[in-house]
Design a protein around this nucleic acid. Structure first.
Lengths: 189, 189
DNA sequence: GGCGAGTTGCTAGGTTGGCTAGCAACCATG
DNA sequence: CATGGTTGCTAGCCAACCTAGCAACTCGCC
């Protein structure tokens, strides 16, 4: 069983400086100095790593692969909103072929996570709905984490929230590469 | 060719409120109000989506899968630091079997991205090194993005950086779920 | 009304990238 | 120097994606 363990907590995303900065809410940088730009970006990468590991854990605890889980999340959100989801929708959302969606829904149906229902107005289509158990399961698995995340943000001042928002928006922009003029709007997409 | 396109810019990560908030650096929330906790978390999710899409783009532009790219990044970082990387190391880092690493290195060697070298002191081991071309390629592909990211962070005040750092550290903690006492250290791991 | 083009989800068969098992070469320790 | 652990390889398996092609259905247009 060389493998089994899935995603260690820290896949050694080691950086030159090591990854100290033990994740405490208030004092995340050891010395009292203002964090440098690089520190912050490292921390962002660290978050990404942690999140990936978390997903692996969830996936494993639900005996499910990434795509299936993504589909499930979308189904739950759509259900909450009262939207119908056809297989076609999953295909475009997940960017996989219709054949793969058939297989995917087969798996989820097999495991009792979703049900196929006839579409009310289009007899070609199949509507996919999550079961009540699925909702409970996901809520239970991810609910605590969401609580903690909200708690962190709730504990911040308005000014701090603006800073974080600005930062995240900047990261999105940087990553989306479109390199639009800094005047807002006008995205190519 | 139903597929080809990979990762649209916005895989419709639609949220109840829609995902307006066009990604401008300074004014990322439309009204002048302080962003709510949920706004910020939505933005974080949005970043995650954008980053995933970016990875898909990179992967496709380099004709490579996620694992291979991860391996490559690690190899480049190790090289910069002057460290040797054995296949075994990749195995533990990526959490895949030694057999899969053999296949992985085969692929990367085939495509000219890495070379196998004998280990200086252990004749069982194989040292994997990235080629100069690879370094150039990655630098070219990701360099601009890094510049933009650094620029964003550089443009922030010390106070703002602290806010962002606190936020990210909090997110890491929330996601790692260990639910350690808020006094730092003592991680289970 | 009916006919042709487009859409939806299914089946069939191929490819990729993981896996386990087992092995030869090598290291290291008593 | 023998014996047990480590490293990377081969062989064979499997999950989850793909493309191609099809039957059932919808819809727009005569």
């Amino acid at each position: 069983m060389e493998h089994s363990r899935i995603a260690l907590a820290h896949p050694a995303d080691a950086t030159p400086g090591g990854d100290r900065a033990s994740a405490s809410s208030a004092y995340w940088y050891p010395d009292g100095h203002t964090p440098s730009a690089v520190d912050v970006l490292n921390l962002l990468r660290r978050y990404r790593t942690a999140e990936t590991a978390m997903r692996a854990r969830t996936r494993s605890s639900m005996h499910m692969n990434e795509t299936d889980l993504l589909a499930l999340r979308h189904l739950l959100r759509a259900q909450q909103r009262g939207d119908l989801v056809r297989q076609r929708d999953l295909s475009t959302l997940l960017d996989i072929s219709s054949a793969s969606v058939t297989a995917l829904v087969d798996r989820l149906e097999q495991s009792g996570h979703v049900e196929r229902r006839p579409h009310p107005s289009d007899r070609r289509s199949v509507v996919v709905v999550p079961t009540a158990d699925t909702d409970r399961e996901v809520r239970h698995t991810l609910g605590d984490m969401h609580q903690r995340m909200i708690a962190v943000v709730d504990g911040m001042t308005g000014e701090q929230l603006v800073a974080v928002g600005t930062f995240l928006a900047g990261m999105v922009e940087a990553v989306e590469e479109s390199s639009t003029p800094p005047t807002r709007s006008a995205q190519t997409r």
